[in-house]
Simulated assay, not measured.
Amino acid sequence: MAVNTDFEELKQAIASGSKDDLLAYISGYDGGGDALLDTVFRSMPGYFRPEKAQGQQADFQYRITTDTGVREYFVRVADGVCEAGPGTVENPRVTMSVKLPEFLRLLTGKINGMQAFLTGKVRLSGDMFYATKFENWFDRP
């Protein structure tokens, strides 16, 4: 499947509003939640808008809980370039801990990041102000 097709199908599963539909999408994804996360993070640089992050440099760490355990991914923004992938970074500016379904809802704009944080669906550590700026550096898939 092409990345755009993946995101269109994901958005449809999320738009249904049903937790069961979203979980079925995740489990039915070729390779499961881990493969879906790999696709998401591999495609992030394509959604990056360097003009919105002009002069900014930061590393972001994601700790995403899937049905097979916690998966770690990073996003690095420096000099107008975005890198993303599996793994960890030293001294991230922000670390987000979240369950996979909530992460996917955040990614597609189905839930608001601040609301998710205030309701405990997302845990953040580090520079909270930067976390709010960071999401504006990317288009929603």
Rank of each mutant, 00 (worst) to 15 (best):
L22Y: 03
D6V: 09
G28L: 09
D6H: 07
A24C: 09
K19G: 06
M1G: 13
S18I: 05
K11C: 09
I14L: 08
S16P: 02
G28A: 09
T5R: 09
A2C: 11
G17D: 02
S18D: 01
D20V: 12
S16E: 11
Q12C: 10
G28Y: 02
D20I: 09
D20C: 05
L22E: 00
G17T: 10
G17F: 08
Y29D: 08
L23N: 07
D6A: 14
N4M: 13
Q12Y: 03
L23F: 03
F7Y: 12
A13M: 04
Y25E: 01
T5K: 03
V3Y: 15
E8C: 10
E9L: 07
S18C: 06
Y29A: 00
L22G: 01
K19E: 13
D21N: 06
K11G: 13
A15N: 07
Y25R: 00
S27R: 03
L23Y: 07
D30Q: 02
I14H: 00
L22I: 07
I26Y: 00
F7A: 09
L22S: 04
A2G: 08
E9S: 13
D21I: 02
K19P: 02
A24I: 02
S18R: 13
G28I: 02
E8A: 13
S27C: 06
E8F: 14
G17R: 11
G28W: 01
N4K: 12
A24F: 00
A15S: 13
T5S: 12
K19M: 11
A13G: 04
A2I: 04
Q12D: 12
Q12E: 14
D30W: 01
D21F: 00
D6K: 11
T5M: 08
D30H: 01
E9F: 06
L23T: 10
D6G: 12
D20N: 03
I14M: 01
N4Y: 10
D30C: 01
L23I: 11
A2N: 15
Q12S: 14
Y25I: 00
E8G: 11
F7N: 05
A15C: 09
G28N: 06
L22D: 01
A15R: 13
Q12L: 12
A2F: 15
S27T: 06
A24D: 07
L10S: 06
M1I: 12
L23E: 05
I26T: 06
M1E: 15
G17I: 00
D30S: 11
K19S: 04
L10R: 11
G28Q: 01
D30R: 03
V3C: 14
G17V: 06
I14T: 08
A15K: 14
M1K: 13
V3L: 12
A2R: 12
S18Q: 04
S27Y: 03
Y29R: 05
M1V: 04
S16Q: 08
S16V: 11
Y25T: 00
L22R: 05
S16R: 09
D20H: 14
E9K: 07
A15T: 14
Y29F: 15
L22V: 12
Q12A: 14
L22N: 04
A15I: 09
G17Q: 08
A24W: 00
E8D: 11
S27G: 04
K19Y: 11
V3R: 15
T5W: 11
S16H: 07
E9G: 09
S16Y: 06
V3W: 15
I14G: 03
S27A: 08
A2E: 14
I26K: 03
T5P: 07
I26R: 00
A2K: 10
Y29L: 03
S16C: 15
Y29I: 06
D21V: 01
T5D: 12
